[in-house]
């Protein structure tokens, strides 16, 4: 073993130079060509900066609610609830979320509530929800904002992000973008 120590040590130093210094530097240089110089995609509205990919908490009735989150959408951390599917306490929480949704959205049928609105995402920062999750909230928002429901449905249609190249993966909506468009519309 002894005769291997010195060569192993020197080999380690040069591997560090190549893999832990040169490689990240090359990626960092490539990032100069990426959106926002590799500091994360942002969008600015009314002079306020938002991260497009980081979901935000929307619980106000005048906005489209985002999904529940185990970290309250504070991206200083991340994580899911890690509740098992048979956990009674967890199932009770889901029940409460359904009831709460029905109280704030009278007239909505229970069978129209999509599952993503009552379950927490894996990261706690999910920027998206499903099309149905937007549609089921239209009636409430139309009433509060004094807007025609049709206009809102149209807004939703415009904000649908199609599957990748039209063929791979699910359809979705970016909640932050949708809500900013909603604010613009109400002005």
């Amino acid at each position: 073993m002894k005769k291997h120590i010195l060569p192993a040590f020197k080999l380690t130093l040069f591997s560090i130079l190549l893999l832990a210094i040169i490689y990240p530097f090359v990626v960092w240089s490539m990032a100069r060509l990426a959106p926002n110089n590799g500091k994360g995609k942002v969008l600015t509205y009314n002079g306020v900066k938002h991260y497009t990919n980081i979901g935000q908490s929307f619980t106000d009735d005048k906005y489209f609610w985002s999904r529940p989150s185990a970290v309250d959408y504070n991206a200083a951390g991340s994580g899911g609830s890690n509740k098992g599917p048979s956990n009674d306490e967890y199932l009770a929480t889901v029940h409460t979320r359904i009831d709460n949704f029905l109280i704030h959205n009278p007239g909505v049928k229970k069978s129209d509530i999509p599952v993503d609105l009552i379950t927490a995402s894996g990261s706690g920062l999910d920027p998206n929800f499903s099309i149905q999750a937007a549609k089921v909230q239209v009636e409430r928002i139309a009433k509060i904002r004094n807007l025609e429901a049709n206009k809102l449905f149209h807004l939703i249609e415009q904000n649908i992000e199609k599957p990748l190249w039209g063929i791979f993966g699910p359809e979705k909506i970016n909640v932050l973008k949708l809500n900013i468009e909603l604010d613009k519309m109400s002005q």
Partner: peptide
């Protein structure tokens, strides 16, 4: 519970995947 569960088991999952 009688809701629309067509998206699947979404607890702990992200919509974009």
């Amino acid at each position: 519970m009688g809701i629309d569960n067509s998206l699947g088991a979404m607890e702990g999952k992200e919509i974009r995947f």
